[in-house]
Design a protein around this nucleic acid. Sequence first.
DNA 1: AATGAATGAGGATTCATTCAT
DNA 2: TATGAATGAATCCTCATTCAT
Lengths: 194, 194, 194, 194
Amino acid sequence: MILTARQNEIVAAALTLIADGGIQNLTMKKIAAKLGVSEPALYRHFNGKSEIVKALIKGFDEGIPEHSGDSRGLAAVKTFVRDRLQQATENPPLARVMFSEELFMDDPEFSGLCMEMRHRHRARMCADFAAAAELGEIRSDIAPEILFPLVFGPVRLLVKQWGMSGGIFDLKAKGEELLAALTKMLAPAERNAR
Amino acid sequence: MILTARQNEIVAAALTLIADGGIQNLTMKKIAAKLGVSEPALYRHFNGKSEIVKALIKGFDEGIPEHSGDSRGLAAVKTFVRDRLQQATENPPLARVMFSEELFMDDPEFSGLCMEMRHRHRARMCADFAAAAELGEIRSDIAPEILFPLVFGPVRLLVKQWGMSGGIFDLKAKGEELLAALTKMLAPAERNAR
Amino acid sequence: MILTARQNEIVAAALTLIADGGIQNLTMKKIAAKLGVSEPALYRHFNGKSEIVKALIKGFDEGIPEHSGDSRGLAAVKTFVRDRLQQATENPPLARVMFSEELFMDDPEFSGLCMEMRHRHRARMCADFAAAAELGEIRSDIAPEILFPLVFGPVRLLVKQWGMSGGIFDLKAKGEELLAALTKMLAPAERNAR
Amino acid sequence: MILTARQNEIVAAALTLIADGGIQNLTMKKIAAKLGVSEPALYRHFNGKSEIVKALIKGFDEGIPEHSGDSRGLAAVKTFVRDRLQQATENPPLARVMFSEELFMDDPEFSGLCMEMRHRHRARMCADFAAAAELGEIRSDIAPEILFPLVFGPVRLLVKQWGMSGGIFDLKAKGEELLAALTKMLAPAERNAR
DNA sequence: AATGAATGAGGATTCATTCAT
DNA sequence: TATGAATGAATCCTCATTCAT
């Protein structure tokens, strides 16, 4: 989906508004005010409010490469995590919205979109977990579908807290601590023995 | 905080509405309709909408005993987790709201309430982690403040997914799987020991 | 009209409320709150809000003797003025309402009541002016119906300003200054010559 | 303050409504109905009800020249009075509202505005009274601050009665009678003179 | 004599959206 | 491409009043 410059401005304004005050704070009037234009002007660029929200949601996917490049297994998982942290760091409002599917979940129009994204990412990560286990990078006594919440639950919580705290701590540093701990915990039993 | 029967009905209706369609779906009109009364009737029982939301948020705390009974360390953490799962199972709408602080975060009136609760629970869990480490129940090479997201990130994610899926899987069973995995991962590296 | 003790309390509360915040501030809820009772309780004592307002308006007449006692002419006018100042001093909220017929004028139910009172007082004063002129107490080159606004316009303005200022100055003293000035101005031309 | 055509229509409608039924009668719905538009349409032209009332109050000042032109002393006072009568005659609803500060007094937002206006006019008149006394146009045995209520109390009462009576008499004619009487009463006591 | 619960009517305001210009 | 004006539907909330207790 390619957006015009104006469309990008609108989506960015919408994101900031949501980050600032939740979905309730996202009104056409406020978007227009943020851009310094009148409300009807927005309708030149989007068919309506939901189109804006949809563009915003789809924008989350941007910057998430479809494939993990040449990395595989544990490395691919870590890269994925680090990319999310990077994304949040670069666009702090995103951090407040990124993992708050419930914001959009209520509207059936958006919940499908969100679910599809979530499932896609999940499937990808599960494949990587399986590869990692096979490669002996991580312990194999935990099912991949359990590994997913084990790894991404903490990541989401961390990003959310960072967003809600207004970016009071160093997200990337804390993220690395988390990854280190996870690495330790997921290490194959033999390694523990060294 | 003791609520009258009618107040409890109102709060329950409000919870259902939020679970159904987010905060946006929580309107006085809809609460009234759910109870089969007129809107103004609600104002006999609560001073306004925010009082209802506040009562709802405070209600989360109910059923969460202040202290962990006689259990300590790891057992206390597990009990806390199981209590949350039980709470969600008993009151499914709660599962959709319980860990969605962002729903209320936008309103400064509620965000304080939520934060206080969160911090209280977190402090309690961190103390339990520290005790568990000291008792040798869990590994001691991970700081308690990292342990917290490591354990509760997955729990939150699981509960949220259960809520959003409409309770399609067995929350308690999946929760036990999660706890089992966490127990494994957090186990002290015996072969490594001293 | 004889009111019970409770009715008097209600009317007094109503007067205070109006003085405090205008007719808009007069609600059954606030009257009830001021008396520490529930709203329905008020309906035991008055048939409704308008009955309360009517009682209040009629109360203005209380303390205004039907006849000027044994005084006549200028003295009767002065007595009437002094009585009004006394009434206001004794019951400051009254000062904010006393001469604000427009407060009630809008409701046809009350405007009649007010008009009748006003006309009655006016007729009485005009008779006194005529007597005063005949007695040679005041100049006779000004028609009584013009004398009325000339004397009571200033009195009303004074009382109103006192009420609105929160009683910041000495109403009676200023009233005497006013009466003195009026006496001078109304003195028969011959007197001026002395 | 320059108002658009629509804004002027709205303010005029508001004035009529207040004149008709007091502040209680001033509702957005009724203003809208009077203009034949929907309620929300009003919000394109004013930010809210209080903005309308404020514009209305400020409008009172319009047509009141800041300075008394080239007239001074007694002439300036008379001009001011005649201007007020003219204003009322031209816009009868204004007559019912013009001197009813208590209508707005309850709302602190408006009472300040009204007081400022009143004080400004009063100061101006007092200066003119002082000048008149110095010029020997009026007697000097009455203090200017007493002269003010003496002159404007009657004027206000007259205008109010005219407004409340629905314009049943000739305001300007009665006003001239009043001015004539005041002129007589305020005339310096020539025979008394030094 | 008093209350708790309820209500229909109405209050101001905000929303996303449309339309003529 | 943008706007000013407008709107129907919805928002929360307050009003005076009634009724069973």
